[in-house]
Amino acid sequence: MSLTFTLDPAVTPELRDGVLGLWTDVSNAGGSVGFVPPVTPEAVRPELVKHLVAMAEGRTRLLVGHDADGRVAATAFLTLNTHRLMSHWLWLYTVMVHPRHQGKGYGRDLLAAAADAARGIEGIEAIRLTCRGGLGLERFYASCGYKEVGRVPDAIRVAPGDDRDDVILLLPLR
Rank of each mutant, 00 (worst) to 15 (best):
K50E: 15
A74S: 10
P9C: 05
D8H: 06
D163F: 14
P160S: 01
L15F: 07
L3H: 00
P172G: 03
A115I: 07
E122C: 03
A73W: 12
E138V: 00
G70F: 03
R151N: 06
Y93D: 15
R59C: 11
D166L: 14
R16W: 13
I124K: 09
R128E: 14
F77T: 08
A114L: 07
I121K: 09
H83E: 13
W91F: 13
T75M: 09
L90P: 01
R157G: 03
A68Y: 04
G30M: 00
P160T: 00
G65H: 07
P153W: 08
G105P: 10
L15A: 12
A126G: 11
V95G: 15
D109I: 05
R59H: 14
G120W: 11
R132K: 11
V33A: 08
D69K: 13
G123N: 08
E14R: 13
R174E: 13
L169Q: 12
L15H: 15
E125R: 15
A126K: 14
V95F: 04
T75R: 02
S27C: 06
G31Q: 10
R71M: 10
G58E: 06
G30N: 10
T6R: 15
N81D: 13
G31N: 09
G105N: 08
A54N: 11
R174Y: 01
V72W: 09
